[in-house]
Every structure is written in structure tokens, then in C-alpha cells.
Design a binder for these strands. Sequence first.
DNA 1: TCAGAAACGATCAAAATCAATCGTAATCGA
DNA 2: TCGATTACGATTGATTTTGATCGTTTCTGA
Lengths: 259, 259
Amino acid sequence: MIQEAHPALAPERRDRIRNLVREGGVARVEDLRKNLKVSVATIRRDLEILEEEGKVKRVHGGAVSMESRLEESVFDDKTNQATKQKKKIAEDALKLVGHEESVFLDGGSTTLFLARLLKQRTDITVVTNSLRAMEELADSGPRVIFIGGEFRRISQTMVGPLSSAVLEQIRVDKAFMGTMGFCLKNGITTTDPNEAYVKRVVAEHAGQVILMADSTKAEKVSFARVSDWDQVDILISDKAIPLNFTKTLRKRGIKVRLP
Amino acid sequence: MIQEAHPALAPERRDRIRNLVREGGVARVEDLRKNLKVSVATIRRDLEILEEEGKVKRVHGGAVSMESRLEESVFDDKTNQATKQKKKIAEDALKLVGHEESVFLDGGSTTLFLARLLKQRTDITVVTNSLRAMEELADSGPRVIFIGGEFRRISQTMVGPLSSAVLEQIRVDKAFMGTMGFCLKNGITTTDPNEAYVKRVVAEHAGQVILMADSTKAEKVSFARVSDWDQVDILISDKAIPLNFTKTLRKRGIKVRLP
DNA sequence: TCAGAAACGATCAAAATCAATCGTAATCGA
DNA sequence: TCGATTACGATTGATTTTGATCGTTTCTGA
């Protein structure tokens, strides 16, 4: 093959894609192809990789920047395939909430679906640090106790040491937790250390810890370590989770539910 | 640079719709169609999505912005007249917020207007127990610390003893407080004892206490007593307040501002 | 209240885009 | 040099988006 002026190595090309997306806020596949002189297949592969790395958000026809305001819709993305699984997980979690119990609701989209379901239950008390969950329950529904603290915009949750001030004074029957990643070796991990800290404190004050995480989170390891598996009582995931995963966890005494 | 040959990406188009709706307050489907050069079917589909995401409110013939709806709900049962005064009070209060200061924002519509103005200030720290104020600052703006506690639906604020857990650990330069009623004899009063309690704790942890209350609140006495006048440093009200009121308060060393 | 007009939702087909697969070329280590 | 691996481009069938059509609903003015 005849070498072009600049063959552009793969990482370099992805860097350029990233910049183009960031500069314009959005970029379509066709424009990127013309700009970088490669096939659309390559562009798509690159975008796939960049999305996994959390650098860009793919959309039909191209990609949008994560920094851009356009990305707001990432949080409640209906087109996301994992959404259906998340809803199923939330519906299963609802069954675990008993009469007049108190539950903690963590941040994240999966638990947000649970919040929506809990709106009908006026017999319980919901404790949360998620602004989105709070908004969901603002008009009507159960008694709500909100954990204060420093506001983290990316996750729309309250985090940091101030949060524990309220947590120290309460106790919940069940804590429904979300996570960015979980794997057998490294346990539960998330992106922000402050967030991880709050999750740990919550776990200490909960009768049962229930982890809600779809299979896309399996074997993912994020930056901040939350806890090991011995803190978790129940895992609710979906059937796409690896079989040895389920086996190992059950051996360790963790209930695994796959609705 | 001409790339209008390709249509805009879907999220980009929705963002433009959102902006058009926000700028005009309302937008007709037909206008959006001409502006974005797509069919009405696409516009309708986009509006449907944006409504589900809570970004706009659909109406027959087009859509209206959520901000204008928020404005309306702030009107609530109050008259237009009082709203203008409240805005003026908020604008005056903004002048008191210095560089890199930390401020507390109380619940209520008057302070909500101030929250909207503070969105531009990224150099400060805002502490609040008002869900409405929190929502106002959720997307962007200053650093936000939210006071947790038990959620009181009527006022959309966090109240009760749990709230003081976070408050005990912080200190603010200025506390901007609202109230249901104030009079010379009984001081500051509000409807709920739990709310009154939080207001007292806040006042203890504030360098300055600034009461924001339009003249319709003057000489009103509510159920729960918050504090006496000696806790207040500055009162911001409007010119319709009785003259002897101003005189007496100034004699007691309280600054009275009437924008 | 009623009729015409405007706007709406549902449905379908065309176009654009995507994901999966396969073959080829370049690269690397043995 | 050989075989394995990786990166890339082309092809094909599947999916998504879009615009047009049609019957229904909602608004408006008489």
C-alpha cells in the first residue's frame, strides 16, 4: 500500500476525533471520514472505543462531546439498550421493600427507576442523596429524608464528609446501591472517592445492602474503590452476567437475583 | 466551512429547539420546522422526547419553556405586584454578595429569585435547604452545599433536627432568609416549628443575617416563632412598608434597604 | 352550539446509518 | 521466513431516522 503523507497512527487519530467532537460539540461520521481520510468503519470503531473510555457519547449519525450541554440527555437516555434491563432490575428491587420499612436510594439511573416505583408507596421512608430521586418524590409519595453535603454536578448527588453528618444519625432497613463497575477481584468501584466514601457510610448504617447493577457494569473497574463483596447482601443484575460470576458470588453467601 | 449539505445531528437539533423555546418562551411547530428545515413530524417527535426529559412543555401548536412555567408557579397565589417587588429585593440582595463569599439561601419565592441571579456567580459557595433553589443551581453555577433533613412538601425545603447535623459543621458569611410574617412586637414568625428551628440554627452560623421580605409580610404573625429582631442585621423590603416600621428598626441598629 | 381549519397521532415506505462479517495488508515475535 | 495478530476497508443485511399520508382530535369564530 502506498504510504500517504501522514498515515496517522490509531491513537493519534482518536485524539483528533476527540478534539473535533469537543470543538464542534458534535461531529457526524461522514465529516470525520472526510477529515481523517479513513473509512466509516474505522471511524465507527474509533467512536466505539472512545465511548467505552467515556470520552464521547455516540449518537445516530455521529457523536457528541461529553462536556457539551447536549450530553445532558445521557443521564436519562431512552435509546440506551441497558435501560430495559435497568427497569426490570428496579421492578425486582421493589419486591424487596417491605411494609413500613426505611430504605436508602443511591444515585444513578437504575435506582432512579426504583424511585419512580416507590412514589406509590406512602407507608415507607426513603433516604437518599440523589437529587434526581428527590425530584421524583418531591410532589407526593413516601416520607423523604435527604442526605445533604456537597453537590456533585456530574452525578447529581450529594457527596463528601458533610453527607455523613446526617447518615450517622439514622439507620435504614435496606440500602439500594448503584455502581459504575463491579468485578470479582476488585469488588465495587465508582468514579469519585467522595462518592465512594458516602456509599461506605451508607452500607455501615444499613440492615441489608442490595447492589443494583446491570451486566454492562460487570468486570468493569473504576477509579475509586467502594468496598469488597462481603459488604453486599444481594446483587440484582440481569441474565447476561457471566455464569462463573453468579456461581462465585453465591458461594460467598451473596444472593444473586437475575430478573 | 459550508456543511449545511448534511442535516444536523438529532441531539444538536433538539438542543436548538430547546434554545428557541427558551429564548421565545414559546415556539410554534411551524416556526421550528422552517428554522430547522425538517418536517413537522420530526419536530413533533423531538418535542415528545424533550417533554419526556422535562426540558419543554408541549402545548397545542408548539411548546413552552419550563422556565416560564416555573415563573408561573412562583406566582402561585401571589399577585403580580408582589412578584415585581420580590425580584427587586433579590436584585438588591445580590449586591450584598461579595467575592468568594459563602451564603445561605432559605426557602421561599423571594430567595428563589436570588438563586436564579446567583447562577452566574461561580466564585461563591451557596448553602441551602431549598429544593427549588437546588434545582435552579443543578446544571451550572456556584459550588453548592445542600442541607439534608426531612423533606417538607408544602415548602419544598429540608427541615427538622437532622438538618442541623450539616449546619453544625459549616459557617456562612451571609444568610439570606425568607419568612411568612414579621412584626415589631413578635419578631419573625413562620408556619412550621421545624422550619423555624432550622432558621434559628442557620442564624447562629451566619456572619450576617439578611431578611428578605416584601411589605405584604409586614405585621403578619404566623404560628411558629423564629427569632427576635436582634438576630437580624439587614432587612430588605420595599417602599410600601410602614414608615414607623423602618424608623423603629433603624433605631435598633438594623439596616433597612428599600429598593 | 356547530362547522371549518389547524394541529395531532399513527402508520408506512424510503433513505440514512449501523453492526457484523470477511478478506487483505502491515506488523511483530519466534 | 513463517505464522499469528492487529488494523483497516468493503460488503451485506439489519436498524434507525425521517417525511408523507390519512383519519382523528382540538381549537376558533360565527
